[in-house]
């Protein structure tokens, strides 16, 4: 348990270091700092993975039950997605300025809010749980990267004197950045859809209904619809530029709220992610 906690704190520290490095790198137009921020994020993600592995062995189930595990795995997937994207395309490393602070705050918040361990029950013992949670994490990872790209796009677009545009000059051109924002939103939309579908099939197996308008189900549908609207305005109404970037920036926190905020606000049988656990 001590190893697990220590590793998580180290991961959190590295995410904090990564956040500072990317901010410094962008503000002082120093690509070495942004590269180091990606390395720090990557090491942090490895440590967090090991920490989850240790926890998995200790508890006998993966990191998908309870607020700490769910929020932590969302962070892990978001950071891992960012690291892979920045590794394959180093020009995108400054997008970490929109991603790493989210990861830092979410992991820190989940560690502070760490509650009791949720044990496996008959209703939770299903392969659908793993698929459902994995796609929720993948979707969130994609939405966060889309969010990061949109923030960078916006900062550069609104840089009247060109100072901030210069700081992000190594990034791909605005048009390419916008395409990346849309593509990650599209990918997140697909994964979110799979998350809803797998959750619905699982609910039918465990609860006897595939849809019950539970607050989490409702909000997940709302988020999916909001991203559907985003994709419609992009592809059919041909929105581009700043207003499209704003849309991506506003949509991501909604997905975060659906995943980790709802159980804190509403009474939901989705006990796996920190609900009141009425129906475990």
């Amino acid at each position: 348990m001590i190893v697990e906690i220590l590793l998580t704190w180290l991961a959190l520290t590295l995410y904090a270091v990564s956040t500072v490095l990317v901010v410094v790198g962008v503000v002082f137009s120093n690509s070495r700092f942004t590269s180091w921020s990606v390395i720090a994020a990557a090491i942090g993600a490895v440590l967090q993975t090991v920490s989850f592995g240790v926890r998995w062995v200790r508890l006998g189930h993966g990191p998908y039950l309870g607020f700490y595990e769910v929020a932590g795995s969302l962070v892990l997937f978001a950071v891992a997605t960012f690291v892979v994207v920045a590794w394959r395309n180093p020009r995108l490393a400054p997008a970490g300025i929109g991603i790493m602070p989210v990861a830092l705050l979410l992991l820190g918040g989940s560690m502070l809010a760490q509650g009791e361990v949720v044990e496996m029950t008959a209703k939770l013992t299903s392969w659908w749980l793993i698929l459902h949670v994995a796609f929720a994490n993948l979707a969130f990872g994609a939405f966060v990267v889309s969010f990061g790209c949109a923030i960078v796009y916006l900062v550069r677009a609104r840089s009247v004197d060109g100072k901030w545009a210069k700081r992000f000059e190594k990034l791909p051109v605005q048009e390419v950045l916008e395409n990346l924002t849309v593509r990650f939103a599209l990918l997140g939309f697909l994964f979110w859809g799979i998350m809803i579908a797998t959750g619905s099939i699982w609910a039918n197996e465990a609860w006897g209904r595939y849809w019950g308008w539970d607050p989490i189900e409702t909000w997940c549908l709302v988020v999916w619809i909001i991203y559907a609207v985003y994709l419609h305005v992009r592809f059919t109404l041909k929105w581009t530029g700043v207003r499209l970037a704003w849309f991506a920036i506003i949509a991501m926190p909604l997905s975060l709220f659906a995943l980790v905020g709802i159980p804190l606000v509403f009474n939901t049988p989705h006990a796996g992610i920190g609900g009141l656990g009425k129906d475990l």
Partner: peptide, 24 residues
């Protein structure tokens, strides 16, 4: 029209949000 579809989706999500807040 795509505009109508977009507005309809927004209205539906607004309705779902309100339905999620008000006890059913």
């Amino acid at each position: 029209s795509p505009r109508f579809a977009t507005v309809l989706l927004l209205v539906l999500s607004g309705w779902a949000i309100v339905g999620g807040i008000v006890p059913q």
